[in-house]
Computed example of a mutant assay.
Amino acid sequence: MEPDDADPAEWLVDLEGSPAHLRLLAETVPPPSTRQVLIHNDLGAEHLLSDGTTVTGIIDWSDAALADPALDFARLYRDFGPSFVHQALQAYGGLDHSLPRIEYHARCAALEDLAFGLTTDRPEYADSARRSIAWLFPQ
């Protein structure tokens, strides 16, 4: 498995969104990560199994890669918010220093989901993305 050491600025290429959202992202691009670990690489709510109170499993590892662990926490941040991610980071052993990276990638993922939902007639993606965008991009 080859490491994915993509520059976070590459996430802005072809990203659709409002000029204000894209400007904020351009102003907050983090440097490339120096840490590479095995990640799910698409770890969002749709890939978590739960018994209602506890995560019991993770499905669909087809995108797994050696990459920045902030990428996995970003989609969790997008889907569940800061409180969930802070708890997950503590369980992981602490990556609090990565919060700006996590937030940047969460914002990009939300805009990607919005575009996907709108262009593929998948309103559930667009609706979820709009909810996330409302708090990921403070006015």
Rank of each mutant, 00 (worst) to 15 (best):
Y92W: 05
L49K: 04
A64N: 07
E27S: 15
G17M: 09
H105V: 00
F73P: 00
L99R: 01
Y77E: 06
H21A: 13
S132A: 14
P30H: 10
D42Q: 15
A67P: 02
A6G: 13
D96K: 02
A74I: 03
S98R: 06
G17E: 05
V29K: 01
F137L: 05
H40E: 00
G44Y: 02
A115N: 08
H105M: 11
A6C: 14
D4I: 11
D14C: 13
V55T: 00
F73N: 00
W61V: 04
Q36Y: 07
R130K: 11
E46G: 13
D5M: 08
P82M: 12
A126H: 02
E2K: 11
G17P: 06
Y104V: 02
V37R: 09
L24R: 07
P69L: 05
F73Q: 01
L24A: 15
Y125I: 03
A115S: 12
L76G: 01
T119H: 08
L12A: 13
G44C: 07
D72A: 04
D60F: 09
M1Q: 13
R131H: 09
S18K: 10
E124G: 11
L48R: 02
P3G: 12
P138M: 13
R23G: 09
D5R: 08
E10S: 09
Y77M: 09
L25V: 10
V13P: 09
S83P: 10
T119C: 12
L25G: 02
A115G: 10
P82N: 09
D5A: 15
A26I: 10
R101P: 01
E2T: 14
L49T: 01
I133M: 04
D4F: 10
A88P: 03
I59Y: 08
A109V: 06
S128D: 10
E16V: 14
I59D: 01
I58A: 00
A134C: 06
F84I: 05
P138G: 07
P100S: 11
A126F: 04
G44P: 05
I133F: 02
G117W: 00
D51C: 10
L111D: 02
W135T: 05
Y125V: 03
S62Y: 06
G52C: 08
L111S: 02
W11Y: 14
L48G: 03
V37W: 06
Q139E: 15
L48K: 04
R107H: 06
H97S: 11
F84C: 01
A26Q: 14
D72P: 03
A45E: 15
G81I: 06
H97Y: 13
Y92A: 01
P82C: 14
T53I: 12
G117V: 03
T28Q: 14
A110M: 02
S33Y: 00
F80G: 05
L43A: 00
D72E: 08
E2Q: 15
D42K: 08
P123G: 05
S18Y: 09
A74W: 00
L12H: 08
L15S: 05
S132E: 00
G57Y: 04
T54G: 07
S83R: 11
R130I: 04
F73I: 01
I133V: 04
T34L: 14
